[in-house]
Design a protein around this nucleic acid. Sequence first.
RNA 1: GGCGUGGUGGCCGAGUGGUUUAAGGCAGCGGUCUUGAAAACCGCCGAACCGGCAACGGUUCCGUGAGUUCGAAUCUCACCCACGCCGCCA
Length: 427
Amino acid sequence: MIDLRQVRQDPEGARARLSRRLDASVGVMLDDILALDVQRRRILARVETLKAERNRATEEVARRKRAREPADDLLADLRASGDEVRALEGELREVELALDARVLEVPNLPAPECPDGDSSANAVIRTWGTPPTFAFAPRPHWELGEQLGILDLPRGAKLSGSGFPVFVGMGARLVRALENFMLDLHTQEHGYVEVSPPLLVNRASAQGTGQLPKFEEELYRVERDELYLLPTAEVPLTNLHRDEILDGAVLPIGYVASTPCFRREAGAHGKDTRGLIRVHQFDKVEIVRFVRPEEGAAEHARITSHAEAVLQRLGLPYRVLALAAGDIGFASACTLDLEVWAAGVGTWLEVSSASTFTDFQARRANIRYRPDPGAKPEFVHTLNASGLAFPRTIIALLENGQQADGSIQIPEALAPYLGTDRLVPRA
RNA sequence: GGCGUGGUGGCCGAGUGGUUUAAGGCAGCGGUCUUGAAAACCGCCGAACCGGCAACGGUUCCGUGAGUUCGAAUCUCACCCACGCCGCCA
């Protein structure tokens, strides 16, 4: 969440920075917050003064009791002031609840390096590799997948509904191969610690990373037990250190997890949802970093390079987009998207989003560190990136690797994991 | 699911209504001593919020939330979590 003190100190500065998100509602939020904050401090000052008086009188009562002197006159006064304190505390609680709820709705401040504008201002800052050319018309993955007998969308729909793909045979093995390949890369070469986290998380966790309260609609919810299915492993990985004070010497910390992700994708049906492009359940390898604030910018470049390494090893052409301030996610201060080229659908598909959240998630989840032994705790900076999301990686592998005979050439780096360098159509 | 026991600072742990501004220890920081280090000894040493330029002052916090009381770590209720036993179960 945003820093309330910073907002109070420089409301117009915060307003200007948030206005870059091009979201008209944040102005109203700030007005409400400033008003509630004034109200809160006014009540708080009165409560605390009353309590200070009461504490002094109470000590006097204790002294007299010990000395076996009468204290009835003081007790009568205290009874009255107790009622007043209780009433004021009730008022205070209401104001604080309203204030907290409002603060949780405010998105992060875009970073200076984040370009201005809406999504049309997203800028390609580099590209890697060359989209392959074909002597024939390249086909989309849903056709290839069916012909190869590795992807069964109709049966997925029968089991669960549209957007729940079934991978079969070498398709299922491809999922397993990608998981092992990516986990090995991040743990062995990038220094991440592998984690196998819970797939259901409580409300506090979903709030800590910023999924709640604003995006309740996007989450699958297990109402009976007040738990939510993960939309991304970012949630458990970041919340591992919720309400902790880390020793500064252990930073930076990096975690990697491969998990299923569940997204309701409310209202997203129709365009761009064909085949595996947008689904309700998919597997993803996620990397998360906890870093010192002064390392934030360098760490953003680092985590992005870790995600890029996956695409480079797979030989998949991609481009890096700097998202504009009007297009970055709720908790993000700056985001770089990696888009892989998919020859069959003839478009660039987002396979990773590398974000720095500055201290926004750390505030929400109360994740701090001690810069030096004995020093005051400060909020860490958190970052994450997909490394990578499987369905669109599979799309690119199938569509870019397709041959005239309908077989698929598998990249050298992945072949040992898959047990073959070629997928062939069913007879 | 049932019954029982417990939850205290970065960590361990004492504390059952009023000198608790939470004992003591460990870790950490500073110092004495030492060529240096260790040991020993001495001192400091939790977090959040409010006011203040600051020095400083004030309030709150003993799993969470309500309640009793002039006053709650301490008493009552509910909930959460951990552990143990029983039941059920992959």
